[in-house]
């Protein structure tokens, strides 16, 4: 990409220098929703820390709570229990005004690039909007910042005059990225940001995220159901199932030598574009059924109803969250440093 914005920031009339980048930490986070049918424990006791400048991948099936977790990380949902820490700030303990002030640093980009844009606003208006809400600069400086951000994400200036329906999915997602960039966030939650895009252009959008991280030191939480995407972009991966982490560790360790039977099954279910003779060496571990309702999660280990290695203990006792290998955590009674238990090893 040859169109680069001066490296300090896309808005040159900002209110002073932005603070040093800070990590994000979830501490025993729970998010419950009250429904007519009972309490949905969408996120139920999750702890992890995302280092400054890191890409933390969160993978899970639908119903695993990954989107709820993402919204909470971006400060859009209130924790029912536990808390989220932005650097030295504890989100739940901050006064409202302070929380509002911090919000610009913690952004989210959604899955559907079209739904995220107002169809009646031009692209330039949409990209300027965050700065208007923040009341930053005057109109001409906001326009300039928006144009620079569009340029940075690889869009021609005339795109700014168009409306969302005139753009392709990939272009619209670039617009959403540009809009986020105008406020120069420290942390971005990327919630299935390439899922709605054709495979042919996913690579270019993922490359853009990587460039922006290098350039601005942005920290990412990358939420996706796509194993190949998450393993390509992430430094570390957390595997979420029914509101709990099953496994967390460095990307290579999790994808090449998973500890949890669920991770192993998930990885083996990914269809690979390989010729028959090369695919046969890989054995598919079939997970029976589908993810149970979060209204009534199974007792003990939540994964046990689908786990090929489940035993009676799994129904009786919640597995401890432990560090089976250095930096590699797992919640399974029977996994050890050598890998997952019994029949699936």
């Amino acid at each position: 990409m040859n169109a680069r914005v001066s490296s300090h920031s896309p808005t040159d009339n900002a209110t002073g220098p932005r603070g040093a980048n800070a990590g994000v930490r979830a501490e025993d986070l729970t998010i419950h929703f009250a429904t007519k049918a009972g309490t949905v424990k969408a996120v139920d006791g999750v702890s992890f820390e995302i280092e400054p400048g890191e890409t933390f991948g969160i993978i899970g099936e639908s119903g695993s709570g990954k989107t709820t977790l993402g919204r909470a990380l971006a400060g859009l949902l209130k924790a029912s229990g536990g808390d989220i820490h932005y650097g030295e700030h504890t989100l739940g303990k901050l006064p409202r005004a302070e929380r509002q002030r911090l919000r610009r640093d913690y952004q989210i980009i959604f899955q559907d690039p079209h739904a995220a844009l107002n169809p009646r606003m031009t692209i330039l208006q949409s990209v300027m909007e965050p700065l208007e809400i923040l009341k930053e600069g005057d109109k001409s400086s906001r326009q300039r910042a928006a144009r620079e951000a569009l340029e940075r994400v690889g869009l021609a200036p005339e795109i700014g005059r168009r409306y969302p329906h005139e753009l392709s999915g990939g272009q619209k997602q670039r617009v959403n990225i540009a809009r986020t960039l105008t406020v120069r966030p420290k942390f971005i939650v990327c919630d299935e940001v390439v899922a709605a895009l054709d495979v042919s252009i996913r690579g270019a959008v993922l490359n853009l995220f990587a460039e922006l991280q290098e350039e601005f030191g942005i920290t990412y939480a990358f939420i996706t159901h796509d194993i190949s995407v998450v393993s390509h972009v992430s430094d570390r991966i957390g595997v979420l199932y029914l509101g709990r982490l099953m496994e967390m560790g460095p990307t290579g360790a999790v994808t090449d030598a998973p500890l949890h039977p669920y991770t192993q099954a998930l990885l083996s279910a990914e269809p690979l574009p390989l010729p028959g003779d090369q695919r046969d060496q890989r054995r598919r571990i079939r997970l029976e059924g589908e993810i149970p309702s979060p209204l009534a999660p199974p007792s003990g280990c939540r994964c046990r109803t689908r786990c090929p290695a489940a035993q009676t203990r799994c129904a009786e006792q919640i597995p401890e969250w432990r560090e089976a290998r250095p930096g590699h955590w797992v919640a399974c009674h029977f996994a050890d440093a050598d890998g997952p238990p019994g029949p699936v090893r």
């Binding site: 042919s200 252009i201 996913r202 690579g203 270019a204 993922l206 490359n207 190949s228 390509h232 574009p273």
Partner: peptide
């Protein structure tokens, strides 16, 4: 397809 590229490398598109 991201699965065919080396982890963290630039992806073709």
């Amino acid at each position: 397809l991201p699965g065919l590229s080396e982890r963290g490398s630039r992806l073709p598109s």
